[in-house]
Design a protein around this nucleic acid. Sequence first.
DNA 1: GGTTTGTTCCTAGGACTTCTAGGAATACGG
DNA 2: CCGTATTCCTAGAAGTCCTAGGAACAAACC
Lengths: 202, 202
Amino acid sequence: MARAGLTVERIVTAAAEMADEVGLDHLNLSALARRFGVKDASLYSHIRGLADLRTRLCVLAAREMTDRIALAVAGRAGKEALFAFADAYRAYALEHPGRYAAGQLRIDPQLAAASAGHRRSVELTHGMLRAYGLAEPDLTDAGRLLRSTFHGYADLESRAGFSHPRTLDASWHRALEALHILLENWPRQAGPQQPEKETSNP
Amino acid sequence: MARAGLTVERIVTAAAEMADEVGLDHLNLSALARRFGVKDASLYSHIRGLADLRTRLCVLAAREMTDRIALAVAGRAGKEALFAFADAYRAYALEHPGRYAAGQLRIDPQLAAASAGHRRSVELTHGMLRAYGLAEPDLTDAGRLLRSTFHGYADLESRAGFSHPRTLDASWHRALEALHILLENWPRQAGPQQPEKETSNP
DNA sequence: GGTTTGTTCCTAGGACTTCTAGGAATACGG
DNA sequence: CCGTATTCCTAGAAGTCCTAGGAACAAACC
């Protein structure tokens, strides 16, 4: 009988597509194996199990997303960079809800440190904020605020099934407008606080 | 043999505790039944199944959370109300991660309409924003921004396992400070847009 | 060619899950 | 005390993840 030609890459790619279709928490190995015309036990020659697959999806999503954001902000600064960053972030989350959810998973810190996507995400955010003239600890505070807003909006929007996407776009861009004004008038920190960094995640 | 004395209320309460302990997605009926010293099939006399239990958790969490927020903002307005609202929101999410996650679930629209918690959450937000002199469509836009930020921060923080909670508090309160300034100087909408409402959820 | 080696995929099965069907034990209203 | 309802049980189907060990295949060496 002809072999399916399984590979870690092919498996992870298929899993990413499947997660986008059915949702990350409905991703399971049996159905994934079925998609390849293969028994579920066969997948274990390539991946260690479901948990392993999910962490692989996490680093994949982080890389894809930061690549996309990096491309969007390239050559821009200030308000333009903010909008490009935010729109790329939201677009990825809406187009790939399963991957996006995977990207939010907490994985082994060592693995996160080795993941290019995870490392670059922090750099991208801080790079953008420096154009606003921010430095630590404002960099961290403003970065957390931005990341929270982006994540919150994308997360709420992606699972809501809102009835009027047009209106959501409007709210989104007004939120960005507001955030831009906020960053321009950011109330600088008086004393130098401990510049604590977050655990790396996109 | 003595009966366990199961009730829908007791089951949902125990499920809420369990979800907070092990996480909403690790909540399962077998373990829950075990906690009552009962076989899993016995739970089906009270609830329709796991999906039913999760939606019940959703309305429970929505009610608890809005109760808490309502108590916090009672008699306050403007900045005080904003901070009270936000702190109550975040505190609930951190103290009850499982319930909070359940509260974010999308449930049947009819059920959501009948849920007191879901209805009140919109009223609370809008009431707070009206103190800033906002009206539609700014009310919706600002409301979505706030909710996104609160949810995003709470969601990221609750699953991160940050190493320095002290610093997280600082970032949080600086974010609130920034949001307050933002609301005070909110760039009013020129033309009246369609005042679209969100699907009701806390 | 043949043989060896290593990978890929299989079958078989254990442990666990949700959920259904139907029967026994218990509590309660008459 | 006794019928009735409810509560809880056993039994089992179907599905999940995962392990162990064997068979089919591809490539590499003699």
